[in-house]
Design a protein around this nucleic acid. Structure first.
Length: 507
DNA sequence: ATAGGGTTAG
């Protein structure tokens, strides 16, 4: 149902029926009505229609420009069919009108319609301008389409060297995971700005190619281009995932030195970096000093506490944020549930999971189910976890079954392990870890023919076992370790220490 | 009217 607020109503009455004795609003009576001003306030279709009615009463030579602006406003408010209607009625639509319409389609997941419209525009003999292609790239929903536009522009158009076009091309390639193509574009650009650099760095970080991302950041710094908050967020994310504490610290100092404002997103990235690099105390300290703590900041803090096993503290912050009037979102709940899971807070975790919808108006997603299943599994409640998985409102994915399979190793629960493995063979047929787990469970029960059977499956599917490895940075040097690895110069000391830790843990 | 962001279960 259409809900019209008081201010909307006021607007509508002005437009519909200015009463005879009251003074009508100036902008509608003058010869040059400022529809743009009014359009900014419109939200509901009916209001747009009122403006439309007014525009078509104005002289024709003005009408087209105003109609273009109407299309822009309509498309910007996702009223696409009506926007299209207006576009189709314009006698001589401008490139601008088509551009905004294409943009509207692109940002509302109707890219195909945007591309169709581009084709129509060219058939009508209308030339694109330098705004057209960035919008068109946004309308692409696959690599092939974008490559088509890339080659089209390179071959035929004179917009092939604009920084906006090339930067949106980089973003486009990165968003579809093709960093290599993005890099080719990037390397050819004679001039790059902060958006260009940040775009390519983000592309590498999204592909988990953190080292290359940081390498590019160094190059960016040398090139003398401006570095801003968004750049640093990407770099910090790379640091967090690499455990590159020293670089992360450098970024922190840099924000200090350059007086870069720690906005909530940058603050969250800093907290996350410190937490993932093992310095939860430092993360907490950053949290305290942040001038504005949005939901992102609380999420990063709660998530950090969760991964360090500080479940009670995480729940404290969870209550704390609500005390400050910050509404938890879906991510908050994931962080809180994982805190319960990592700290064995089973009762609390169950309570929170079951109250999500009621207390926080958050519909549980598969990730929430994932945390909850993890919680039950870690608590040894395997059957309960299994029941949840098979009764979930959505299709369970490999993570869910993998969690259960992993939990089955502790007690060598063959029945549930086989049920999980059956699903995983379909969902993740090439995940070597799953085969190793099930094989270990069979081995624990001395079922050697089953072990051999799994080994044969591995061989038949030509699955390469990918040994797990970890990275840690000490004094600016990144050290890499694999299971059973003896290559490190301090290998002997490391294994000694591991043994000591194992003994302490057993105690 | 053009290009860009963080946290997320095994």
């Amino acid at each position: 149902m259409l809900k019209v607020s008081a201010s909307d109503r006021q607007l509508t009455t002005h437009l519909v029926a200015p009463s005879k004795d009251s003074k009508p609003p100036e902008n509608l009576t003058s010869n040059e009505p400022n529809h743009l001003q009014i359009l900014k306030k419109c939200t509901h279709l009916i209001q747009f229609k009122q403006v439309h009615a007014h525009i078509i009463k104005t002289p024709l030579h003005q009408a087209d420009t105003h109609l273009s602006k109407l299309i822009q406003a309509l498309a910007g408010s996702a009223h696409l069919p009506y926007a299209r209607l207006v576009l189709d009625q314009i006698t001589e639509p401008s490139t601008f009108a088509f551009n905004t319409m294409i943009k509207g389609y692109g940002t509302n997941n109707l890219g195909d319609k945007g591309i169709d419209l581009y084709i129509q525009m060219r058939y009508q003999g209308l030339n694109p301008d330098n705004f057209t292609y960035p919008y068109l790239l946004k309308a692409c929903n696959g690599l092939k389409q974008g490559k088509g536009i890339h080659s089209l522009v390179v071959k035929n158009e004179r917009f092939s060297s604009g920084i906006y076009f090339l930067t949106s091309l980089i973003t486009f390639y990165c968003s579809f995971g093709d960093v290599e193509s993005a890099r080719l574009v990037f390397d050819r650009m004679p001039e790059k700005n902060v958006v260009t650099w940040t775009g390519i760095i983000k592309g590498y970080v999204m592909q988990k190619r953190y080292k290359e991302g940081i390498e590019l950041f160094y190059q960016m710094k040398n090139s003398g281009v401006e570095i801003n908050e968004l750049t640093l967020v990407c770099v910090l994310s790379a640091c967090a995932n690499l455990g590159a504490l020293e670089i992360g610290k450098w970024v922190h100092e840099y924000t200090d030195r350059k007086k870069i404002f720690l906005n909530p997103k940058l603050g969250a990235a800093l907290i996350d970096m410190y937490a993932k690099c093992g310095h939860i105390d430092k993360a907490s300290q950053v949290f305290q000093t942040l001038p504005c703590k949005g939901v992102y900041v609380w999420n990063a803090m709660i998530g950090g506490l969760a991964m360090h096993g500080f479940g009670i503290e995480a729940i404290d912050r969870f209550m704390g944020m609500q005390g400050y009037g910050i509404k938890p979102d879906g991510i908050t709940l994931i962080a809180v549930l994982s805190a319960c899971s990592h700290s064995g807070l089973v009762v609390k975790g169950k309570e929170i999971f079951h109250s999500m919808r009621k207390d926080y108006e958050i519909e549980p997603t598969i990730k929430h189910y994932g945390c909850f299943v993890d919680l039950l599994c870690r608590a040894g409640l395997l059957n309960e976890a299994y029941e949840i998985i098979i009764n979930m409102p959505m299709e369970p994915n490999g993570v869910l079954w993998g969690t259960l399979l992993n939990a089955c190793t502790a007690t060598a629960n063959i029945e549930l392990a086989e049920a999980a493995m059956e699903q995983l063979m379909v969902l993740e047929p090439f995940n070597d870890g799953n085969y190793v787990l099930i094989s270990n469970i069979y081995a624990a029960k001395n079922r050697w023919d089953d072990v051999a059977r799994i080994r044969k499956v591995l061989k038949d599917k030509q699955i390469v076992r990918n040994p797990g490895h970890s990275l840690i940075e000490v004094d600016n040097i990144v050290h890499e370790f694999m299971a059973g690895d003896g290559r490190h110069p301090c290998s002997e000391e490391i294994y000694d220490m591991l043994e000591k830790i194992a003994i302490t843990l057993k105690e």
